[in-house]
Simulated assay, not measured.
Amino acid sequence: MKKVYRLLCILHAFVGVGAMFGGFAAITNPQNPAGATVDLLKNSPFSNFFIPGILLFTVIGLGNVITTFLFRFKLRFQGYISSIFSWALVIWIVVQCIMINSVHFLHIIYFIIGVIEAILSIIVLFEKRLFPTNLIIDFYKKIKKQKDDCNV
């Protein structure tokens, strides 16, 4: 379980720091952040990268960095916190691909990272037996008990 926590911590830190840099670039230069042109936004509701930059910096960046620091405390609800920001990353990537009407190599990488974070978060939820995993475990135990009763 220690490896799961360590990997989640590393992935959240990687995503968070990268998103903070990308978000900061978009906030400080909303017309041309890190070489991206506003032409990419022609299918989106945005005329420049300022609002997406704020969202990237705060939700994806700060959210993942804070999640990284919260792993030090091994909170009971860490699986939920990690899951929220994992799915936020996945949703961010999907929406971004839709808005720019294109998929790039980095989109695929970050999408996979988000899915891996989500899976690891579910493992944490199972380990702590939190909702909804507690229902799944209870259901499995009932089925197993019924099966064992039938075999007797």
Rank of each mutant, 00 (worst) to 15 (best):
K3F: 06
Y5S: 12
Y5W: 13
R6T: 14
L7V: 04
A13D: 00
G16H: 13
G16S: 12
V17N: 04
G18R: 08
A19C: 06
A19G: 06
M20A: 03
F21Y: 13
F21E: 08
G22W: 04
I27F: 05
P30Y: 00
Q31P: 00
N32T: 12
P33A: 10
G35D: 07
T37K: 07
T37W: 01
V38A: 11
L40Q: 05
L41H: 04
L41C: 03
L41S: 04
N43E: 04
P45G: 14
P45M: 12
F46I: 02
F46T: 02
N48A: 01
F49V: 00
F50W: 15
I51H: 12
P52A: 09
P52H: 13
L56A: 13
L56W: 01
F57D: 03
I60A: 11
G61Y: 00
G61P: 01
L62V: 14
L62H: 00
L62I: 15
V65L: 14
T68F: 12
L70G: 00
F71I: 03
F71R: 02
F71T: 07
F73P: 05
F73V: 05
K74Y: 10
K74R: 15
L75G: 09
L75I: 05
L75V: 00
R76A: 10
S82K: 00
S83I: 07
I84R: 05
S86A: 15
S86L: 07
W87E: 09
A88S: 15
I91W: 10
I91A: 13
I91F: 14
I91R: 05
I93P: 02
V94Y: 07
V95W: 10
I98Q: 11
I98C: 10
S102Q: 13
S102C: 03
H104Y: 14
L106E: 09
L106M: 13
H107Y: 06
H107T: 00
I108C: 04
F111W: 08
F111G: 03
I113C: 05
I113M: 05
G114F: 01
V115T: 10
I119N: 01
L120M: 01
L120Y: 08
S121R: 00
I123T: 09
I123F: 03
V124S: 05
L125I: 10
K128P: 03
K128T: 08
R129M: 12
R129I: 05
R129F: 08
R129T: 03
L130D: 09
L130C: 09
F131R: 11
P132K: 06
N134P: 13
I136R: 06
F139S: 15
Y140H: 06
K141A: 09
K142H: 14
I143C: 04
I143R: 03
K144I: 00
K144H: 03
K145S: 15
K145E: 14
K145Y: 04
Q146G: 15
K147C: 08
K147F: 05
D148Q: 14
D148K: 13
C150S: 15
V152D: 08
V152M: 13
V152R: 14
